[in-house]
Amino acid sequence: MIEALRLFAAFVRVAVHREVAYRANLVAQTVQSVVGLGTALGGLAVVFAHTATLAGWPPSELVALVGVFQMVGGAIGFAIQPAMQRLMEEVRTGALDFTLLQPADSQVLVSVREVSVYRLTDVALGAALLGAALARLGARLGPGRIAAFTLALAAGGAVVYAVWLALATCAFWWVRVDNVLVIFETLYDAGRWPVSIYPGWLRGALTFLIPVALATSVPVEALTGALRGRTLALAAVVAAAALVLSRLLWRAGLRAYSGASG
């Protein structure tokens, strides 16, 4: 874990080094982040012009949800998506050979070595929005809820990472899978609304298949106290299982890549 953070820091340093030269990208990304946030908040404004609560969620909680949605989306765009895209690219071109010959855990290496620095604007904006929403929720926030939120967010993040890695690992068997990642992005968009508003089949898909809800709705429910301890424990178990499964899948993918039997 420490090793992973050390490598991650090195790769982020180089990425920052590279990106400061393109400050116009920062402007472009900021515009996009603000537009994204504006769209989400505008949607809320339209909806709450007609109702006081949505599926039991008052406006301030939905604003918190938008904040978490933006944060998690930004974190994915910052660290997970670029690394996984590069992984698939390298499987296709064969450049993964060089990565596999480096003396570090290959899964850690492919997971940390590419970042899009400017997507951090989404993380910052989302965090600011979340902070504002929390200020309105105010006194009801105890340390217990903060801890539950942190745990839920970590679990959600772990699950999202595991799903991305699993999708990208498919490249070892079917070389052209870039588009599979679009599935995640498309479904992730549904995460800006409480998952409880969706019909059963979609709710199931967002909870179990591509578990977007674990990274968005569930952490916010932890904040607002709507989350039962059992659900939180379940989320933690699911996260651990997802990490283990993605690790196994990664190993199997590598074996397929290098042609080992069994």
Binding site: G43, V47, H50, T51, A52, T53, L54, A55, D189, A190, W193, I197, Y198, P199, L202
Partner: peptide, 12 residues
Amino acid sequence: VYLAVWSAVAAA
């Protein structure tokens, strides 16, 4: 997604 949102609003 928006259909689900507005159905929830209508229900509320």
